[in-house]
Design a protein around this nucleic acid. Structure first.
Lengths: 108, 108
DNA sequence: CTCTTTGCTACATTTAATGTAGCAACACGC
DNA sequence: GCGTGTTGCTACATTAAATGTAGCAAAGAG
C-alpha cells in the first residue's frame, strides 16, 4: 500500500493536495538521491564512477534512483555517462547554499 | 555494517574525508526528514499534529527522525511542541527556493 | 578473438519503515 | 479523589526497501 500521498507522476509519490513540493521532497528524501545529485555537480559520471563516488553503494539502488531521477527530468544518460540536465542543474543550484551551511553546522 | 561513511557525530553517518556536507546529505536523505523540517516551517507542532501533517506516518519513524534532528540541533522540544531551532530555521531557509522550483517542475 | 568497460539485472540477506496498540505523565474539569 | 483527554514515546509483528555479491549482454580497443 503506498503511503506518503497519492501517485501523481510515474514512480513519484506526491501530495494529494496538489502540492508539488511534497512530490519533490519525497523524491529527494529517498536514500542516495541527494548524494547522487551532489556527486554529479561537476559533470557526468559513468555508472561505475558514480558508484565509487557514492562510497560503493549497491548498484541495485543506484540504478533505481537514477531511473527515478531520469523520469523526473533531473538526470540524463549521455555518451559521457550520467549527467544533470538543465533542470537538474537548476535543482542543484537551489540547495547549493547547503554546502556553506554544512560547514558552519559542523563547527557548532 | 554501517555504510555511507564513518560515524562522525552520534547518529549521523558522515564522510570519512571530513566533508560535513556528506553527513548533512545523509541526514536529510533519510525518509521523512525533509518533510518534517518542511511541516515545522510555520511554527511548532505537537507530536500528534506533526504526525497528522505528515500524512499519518508511523510514530516510530517520526520519533526516530525527531531524535536525530534534535541531536543535530535543528529541532527542539518546547512547551508548544516540536519546533525548529535557530539553526533549523537557517537550514530551512537554504532550501526555501525549492518550493518555487517544485512549482515550475510540476508544470514541465 | 580476447580483454576491458559499460549499463544494468538477479537474488538471497540484512536493515529500515509501517501499522497497530498501548503505556506513563500531565492537565483539565468535577 | 475520579474520569477524560492529550502529550511524548515505546513494543512488536508485518511489510517494504537497501545491501552485497555475482554476473550478463553490448560495445569498443587492440
Amino acid at each position: 500500500m503506498p503511503k506518503q500521498g497519492l501517485v501523481t507522476k510515474p514512480g513519484v509519490r506526491g501530495s494529494r493536495s496538489g502540492r508539488p513540493i511534497m512530490a519533490l521532497l519525497d523524491l529527494l528524501g529517498r536514500r542516495w538521491t541527494l548524494r547522487i545529485l551532489w556527486e554529479l555537480r561537476d559533470g557526468a559520471l559513468t555508472s561505475r564512477a558514480l558508484r565509487t563516488a557514492c562510497d560503493e553503494a549497491s548498484p541495485t539502488i543506484l540504478q533505481t534512483r537514477l531511473t527515478e531521477l531520469r523520469e523526473a527530468g533531473f538526470v540524463e544518460l549521455t555518451e559521457d555517462g550520467y549527467g544533470l540536465t538543465a533542470l537538474g542543474r537548476e535543482l542543484f543550484a537551489t540547495f547549493t547554499p547547503l554546502n556553506r551551511f554544512a560547514e558552519r553546522w559542523s563547527k557548532r
